[in-house]
Nucleic acid binder design. Structure first.
Length: 494
RNA sequence: GGACCGUUAGCUCAAUAGGCAGAGCACCUGACUCUUAAUCAGGGGGUUACAGGUUCGAUUCCUGUACGGUCCA
């Protein structure tokens, strides 16, 4: 049946309901919901077969998902946000008029208010024996198939409301998401960290190496950017003596989409003055462990068949040591860039042009190591060249006190001791500007006011960013980032 | 960006060595006072994603496009 035909039929029925009964299903504003369905299931589990507790008055509301109409007695299943329950409609209990109205006008997909008593059928199912059924809202589009649910991934993402109503387990993922987010906030706040809001719309998109989305402010006649990170604003707050601060919110990066990337995603960034990257690694572990406990009640996680043990300390190992371990190459012994390039080529890596040895080190990590980091692993010691905001390792100034956390081959967190030497910071930005001039559109922009801020004096500070969507993916065993974002970015269909 | 796969009724899926496009759910009519994927009887519902090509004939074969999925970069 064409969709318009279904709509036409339902609109026709709606018209007849208004005409013949003088009943408008869209005028209702409230229903006194006294019980949720799960609550009833828990409280009246002791009712025996064939027993009807007429002394108990129930009042619930929800969407009818299946309807089994018979002559003078019918059944249906109603769903609310906690679960679903069978309803028993019986002429004798509802009265002639109430039963007739139900049978003639109420259909699967409609929203109803129900009053009745708990009882258990001969087949043993806890059921509400309906005394009153009020049509609170009429649906004029059909439900997805009741047995298989909605399986078409495209429709599930584009019309999430259909996915949520017909696949209850999807709602559980987003409940877990809320628990994880709350848990992260609680952990941070337990450590005296203040939640703040910094601009999403900004005239400079810094704090990470990524291409921003560009928009335009008409009144100012100014191109503006959606933020790619919160870092530079949060560190200004530390300069301003706000102490420990964090922000959890959306970042936007103008890049490809796949199972791990959505153009808009949720990140949490936190900055603690007088702490370093080791403290941030400790904090990362604490946040993740507590989130797992709060969401799942355990620190053992299975993601797509791989068991992850979050209870043990996460391994901490430098990039140089990882390349030594996985490729047998000692970068500390490499003198020149050319030497590094030829070694990488010997390992089968296509190195083009004049990559520095530090860029080659990064490429080797990405190519040969990252995928193998299944259990949570802090990769440390990133080259200064690729870390324009990180403090140098005083022992090895070409490297920084930085880490990234990898889980199942994916980056979940990134943190470092913050660079607070304003002279060095200016030089790093100048390097980035040079890269930009050479055509690198992911180079970090030069932010003069940020330099001014740290010229005022940024205390020694540890900073950390966590990819919240990815963390949620691992804790909810979700294959794609789209499964943990309610309305993922989709290309328009037509 | 590349490779592969998918797109048939609102939903879940069939079908043809190239020959009238089918089922279940949902929808409409009727029967039924313990059903639960209710059942029974009847009915309506299709530009087979879109655009071309080959052919007497294309949903099926070919080319392209769109959207989606999986893997790779």
């Amino acid at each position: 049946m064409p969709e318009e035909e279904i709509l036409r039929q339902r609109l026709d029925k709606l018209g007849r309901l208004r005409e013949e009964e003088g009943y408008d299903p869209y005028v209702h504003e409230t229903w006194d919901v006294k019980h949720t369905l799960n609550q009833i299931r828990a409280e009246h589990d002791d009712i025996e077969v064939d027993q009807n507790r007429k002394d108990v008055e129930l009042s619930v509301a929800g969407r009818l998902m299946t309807v089994r109409k018979q002559g003078k007695a019918s059944f249906a299943n109603v769903q609310d946000e906690t679960g679903n329950m069978q309803l028993y409609f019986q002429l004798d209990a509802m009265g002639e008029e109430g039963y007739r109205f139900f049978k003639k006008w109420i259909d699967a997909g409609d929203i109803v208010g129900i009053e009745g008593h708990p009882f258990r059928t001969k087949r043993g199912e806890l059921t509400i024996a309906v005394t009153r059924c009020v049509l609170l809202c009429k649906a004029i589009r059909p439900l997805p198939e009741k047995w298989h649910g909605l399986t078409d991934m495209e429709i599930r993402y584009r019309k999430r409301y259909l996915d949520l109503m017909s696949n209850p387990e999807v709602r559980d993922v987003f409940r877990q998401r809320a628990k994880i987010v709350a848990s992260v906030r609680k952990t941070l706040e337990d450590h005296g960290t203040l939640e703040v809001d910094t601009p999403i719309l900004s005239y400079l998109a810094g704090g990470a190496n990524a291409r921003p989305f560009v928009t335009h402010h008409n009144a100012l006649d100014l191109d503006m950017y959606l933020r790619i990170a919160t870092e530079l604003h949060l560190k200004r707050l530390v300069v301003g003596m706000m102490g420990r601060v964090y922000e959890m919110g959306k970042n936007f990066r103008n890049e490809g989409m796949d199972a791990m990337h959505n153009p808009e995603f949720t990140a949490m960034e936190v900055y603690w003055p007088y702490c370093d990257y080791n403290d941030m690694m400790d904090l990362t572990e604490e946040i993740i462990r507590k989130a797992a406990m709060d969401a799942n009640g355990t620190t053992t996680v299975t993601w797509q068949g791989t068991e992850l043990d979050l209870s043990r300390p996460f391994r901490r190992v430098t990039m140089v040591d990882l390349v030594k371990e996985h490729c047998g190459v000692d970068f500390d012994a490499i003198e020149t860039d050319a030497q590094a390039r030829s070694i990488a080529e010997g390992e089968g890596l296509a190195v083009e042009g004049n990559e520095s040895k530090f860029k080659v080190l990064l490429m080797m990590i990405e190519e040969f190591v990252e995928k193998k980091l299944v259990q949570p692993t802090f990769v440390m010691g990133h080259p200064t060249e690729i870390s324009p905001l990180s403090k140098r390792d005083p022992e090895k100034p070409d490297y920084t006190h930085r880490f990234e956390l990898f889980v199942c081959g994916s980056e979940v967190a990134n943190g470092f001791s913050e660079l607070n030497d304003p002279i060095d910071q200016r030089a790093r930005f100048e390097d980035q500007a040079r890269l930009k001039a050479e055509g690198d559109d992911e180079s970090h922009p030069f932010d003069e006011d940020f330099i001014n801020a740290i010229e005022q004096g940024l205390p020694p500070t540890g900073g950390l960013g966590i990819g919240i969507d990815r963390l949620i993916m691992f804790l909810t065993d979700s294959r794609s980032i789209r499964d943990v974002i309610l309305f993922p970015t989709m290309k328009p269909k037509a």
